[in-house]
Design a protein around this nucleic acid. Sequence first.
DNA 1: TAGGTTATTAGGAATGATTACTATTATAAA
DNA 2: TTTATAATAGTAATCATTCCTAATAACCTA
Lengths: 162, 162
Amino acid sequence: MNQEKNYRMTHQREMILEVVQKNHSHLTADEIYDRVRKKLPRISMGTVYRNLDILASCGFIKKLQPGYAQMRFDGNTRDHYHVVCMRCGKIGDAQIEPLDNTLENLENALGNLTSYGIFGHNLEFVGLCPNCMELEKDLPDDQQTNQLMMEVTEDGSQRKPN
Amino acid sequence: MNQEKNYRMTHQREMILEVVQKNHSHLTADEIYDRVRKKLPRISMGTVYRNLDILASCGFIKKLQPGYAQMRFDGNTRDHYHVVCMRCGKIGDAQIEPLDNTLENLENALGNLTSYGIFGHNLEFVGLCPNCMELEKDLPDDQQTNQLMMEVTEDGSQRKPN
DNA sequence: TAGGTTATTAGGAATGATTACTATTATAAA
DNA sequence: TTTATAATAGTAATCATTCCTAATAACCTA
């Protein structure tokens, strides 16, 4: 199924892919598990997670994961955006003014298109902190950050670092 | 310390607030725990979490939490933004074109201001799904969503729903 | 088509952040 | 002070996700 790695197409993997592709509702892993289990009752949760990872790394599906795993706390209560390190999760301040006008217009436009009630937005920038940029230099090519981008940015936007 | 609720100012709460305010590095709960423990060695993790919540709800600090708790998976691999329900976590598609030009310029600008290497961005809209909007009507005023906004949007942007 | 290599699986245990519970203690108002 | 009750320490529980391992199944090659 993939050129680079010797992946094999198993029934489990096939079913998981089918479930994700046929659903437009951004299922969680356990929702996928429940659905696949109707066809393959003995499948395990570990199999579901492993295959979702593999399918995402092959570009067949997309993993939506929170920008950071742990809560963090900020003594600065003024409105400001953040930069999140995609390797270590460290958060820095983005010295950029909030895009209130641009995004409020966008929120209004979106409000007319969706059945959701729109209250606000989250914008964060994704990158590498100085420390992780250093470490990166010692890694083999296939572990370099640009290889990992697809899994990290929510919207798949991807470009060379500044 | 607060007008609405009968909060009391304890040594623990005071120390936690001080640690968060004196650090500009967006500490995690366990980093705060470690630092506070140097002054109050018997403090417990539960106390740290509870106080961080209370301090955030009073507006003294800001809680940075991921937009959604669980990973989700999308069969649609085209670039697109999402709307996240702030009550149930359900994710919908935002029928809005990616802001590639606007935000790429912003990423470039930011790249010159920060020590991070910038690779991309995440933008998500926050709101209420149709189902939760219905449920909302039955809630007492102090549990209505607009009361909860400060805790939800990353940058604190806040407005009436569309 | 069979056999062998090894990727993949099921099942269960482990992890790690966060929340919940409870008897005891400390705060602040009268 | 006294008193009501908010807050605490310590511990147990939760829950999504990852890790581990012996057994199984895909797929390449003869």
